[in-house]
């Protein structure tokens, strides 16, 4: 079964606007973070008729800002648990909307979150189907959809 076109930019923009009141702008350069920047990654996996994963990546500083909005707290009040929860929920919403666009019967995993500098995320057996970069207040946000190579 061929995967339908998934508009990652529209999905991400809808989520950030409705849930955070933030605007995502197109980013025209290669969506790559500087190696010295701490980056948070939220990931959900899709299984079933389509198999793959969706990741949402953003600078930890931006992730803290997002968490502060979600929890309606000041950035200084936000701890690692809140940041992880917020990034996981971003991945969950993005992955859920991607899953809803794919045809067939699929299941969505619970989100996982990691963070660090200069690392690569891979899901064995899958390849990057689409990766987009967008900016929010000048900070890069990267959304990636990975699918099994035969999809």
């Amino acid at each position: 079964m061929d995967a339908p076109v998934v508009e990652l930019d529209r999905i991400a923009s809808d989520i950030w606007t409705a849930m955070l009141g933030l605007t995502l702008e197109p980013y025209h350069d290669a969506p790559v973070f500087p190696p010295d920047q701490r980056v948070a990654t939220g990931i959900v996996q899709i299984t079933g008729d389509f198999e793959g994963a969706v990741t949402v990546q953003l600078a930890e500083t931006k992730a803290r800002e997002v968490a502060a909005i979600m929890f309606a707290m000041g950035p200084d009040e936000i701890g690692e648990e809140e940041v992880s929860d917020a990034v996981g929920e971003l991945a969950n919403m993005t992955g859920g909307n991607v899953k809803s666009t794919l045809c067939g019967v699929c299941q969505l995993s619970l989100p996982s979150v990691t963070s660090g500098r200069d690392y690569h995320v891979s899901v064995p057996g899958t390849a990057v189907r689409d990766r987009i970069g967008m900016t929010c207040g000048g900070e890069l946000v990267v959304i990636t959809m990975l699918l099994r190579q035969d999809a």
């Binding site: 849930m19 979600m70 929890f71 309606a72 648990e81 929860d85 917020a86 996981g88 929920e89 969950n92």
Partner: peptide
């Protein structure tokens, strides 16, 4: 909701 953030958003 298992997400505390989402519970906060729904409550708000």
């Amino acid at each position: 909701d298992d997400s505390k953030a989402m519970r906060a958003i729904v409550k708000r």
